[in-house]
C-alpha cells in the first residue's frame, strides 16, 4: 500500500525539529525510515505530520574518547558497525550490530531510530543495555539522560515522554579485562531474531569481577539477567554457566506466530550458554 497523505517538514536545525515536535506532539520523526515507512505503508501508522530528521545538522557524529563511544542519533547503523575505533573500544557493537537487518537497510537505518523504535528484536537495544549506555533525550524544554537499562519498557514502549527525541547514545569505556559475546537465532540468515543473548564479562585476578547478560525476546522488553551476582568471584566453567541458565527458569516468553514461548525459552538458555562462554574466553584474552 501507499502511505496516507501527511504534511512534511525537513528542518535543518535540532531546535527547529524540537519546536515542530512540541507544536505537533503526534507527529512522527522520520530518521532512517526502515521501520516507520513500512508501518506507514501498512497504514498501521497514519501520521498527519512527518518531521524528517535527515537534514538536521550535528546528529551524525561518532566520537571515541578514552574507550568511551558517543554516537549521534542520526549515525547510520552501517557507519557504526564499520567504524574501526568503535570496534576497538566495544567489539560487541559490531558483533551484535551486524545482525541488525542487512547492509542496505543499515545504510539508512539509524542508531537513534533503532533505540527509539524499541523493537523487541533490536540488537542495538540489547547492546546498549549490556554496555551500560546512556541515552540522551531532548525536547524543546531541555535535555535528560536515561540509562539504557531503564529505557526499554516493552515492545515499542520507551521512557521517552511526548515531545522528546533521542539525540545521542553514549557507551562508557569498558573496564580492563572485559570480553563480550553475542549469539542470535533466527529462522533465516539475517532475519529478525527469534531470540538473542548479549553478554559482557570483566575478569580480574582470574575470576569474574562483573558480568552483564541481556536477552532479547525472552520477555516483552529486553530482559536484564543479574549474572553478576551468580558469577562474581568465580571462573565461568560449565557449572557457573549452568547456574546462570538455572536462573532463567522463571522466564515466560509470549507465544506468537513466529515461535512458541517454550521454543524461545529453550533458545534463551542455549544462546546464554554460548554468549557467556564467548564473553569469558574474550575476557581472559583481554586480561592476559
Amino acid at each position: 500500500m501507499k502511505p496516507a497523505p501527511f504534511a512534511y517538514h525537513a528542518p535543518t536545525a535540532l531546535d527547529e525539529a524540537l519546536a515542530l515536535l512540541a507544536a505537533e506532539p503526534e507527529a512522527r520523526l522520520l530518521a532512517g525510515g526502515q521501520s516507520l515507512v513500512p508501518r506507514m505503508r501498512l497504514r498501521v501508522e497514519k501520521p498527519a505530520v512527518v518531521i524528517d530528521l535527515n537534514r538536521v545538522e550535528g546528529l551524525d557524529g561518532i566520537a571515541v574518547d578514552g574507550g568511551a563511544v558517543t554516537v549521534g542519533a542520526l549515525v547510520r547503523q552501517q557507519a557504526l558497525v564499520d567504524d574501526e575505533a568503535v570496534f576497538r573500544a566495544h567489539p560487541l557493537i559490531r558483533l551484535a550490530g551486524s545482525h541488525a537487518g542487512f547492509h542496505t537497510t543499515r545504510h539508512r537505518g539509524t542508531v537513534g531510530g533503532s533505540i527509539a523504535f524499541a523493537a523487541p528484536w533490536a540488537e542495538l537495544s540489547a547492546t546498549a543495555i549490556t554496555l551500560g549506555a546512556t541515552i540522551t533525550a531532548r525536547s524543546s524544554a531541555g535535555e535528560r539522560a536515561i540509562a539504557a537499562g531503564d529505557f526499554f519498557l516493552g515492545p515499542h514502549q520507551t521512557a521517552l515522554a511526548a515531545g522528546e527525541m533521542v539525540t545521542q547514545v553514549r557507551f562508557p569505556a569498558a573496564d580492563a579485562g572485559t570480553g563480550f559475546g553475542f549469539h542470535e537465532a533466527s529462522p533465516r540468515w539475517r532475519d529478525y531474531a527469534t531470540a538473542a543473548a548479549s553478554a559482557s564479562i570483566t575478569v580480574r585476578d582470574g575470576a569474574v569481577a562483573d558480568a552483564r547478560l541481556t536477552l532479547l525476546r525472552a520477555a516483552p522488553a529486553p530482559l536484564q539477567v543479574d549474572a553478576a551476582s551468580i558469577l562474581a568471584g568465580r571462573a565461568v566453567d560449565e557449572a557457573a554457566i549452568a547456574d546462570v541458565v538455572a536462573a532463567l527458569d522463571g522466564i515466560d516468553p509470549p507465544d506468537d506466530v513466529e515461535a512458541s514461548g517454550r521454543h524461545r525459552a529453550r533458545l534463551a538458555r542455549t544462546l546464554t550458554e554460548r554468549a557467556l562462554a564467548d564473553a569469558w574466553a574474550n575476557a581472559k584474552e583481554a586480561a592476559a
Binding site: 525537513a10 515507512v37 513500512p38 505503508r41 524528517d52 542496505t104 537497510t105 545504510h107 539508512r108
Partner: peptide, 24 residues
Amino acid sequence: HGFCGVCNILLDGQTVRSCLMFAV
C-alpha cells in the same frame, strides 16, 4: 514494504531500498 530488496538502488554510492524512502 522493505522486505525483498528488489527495488534496491544506489543513493550517493550506497544501496538503499527505494520503496522505503520518499522522493522528497
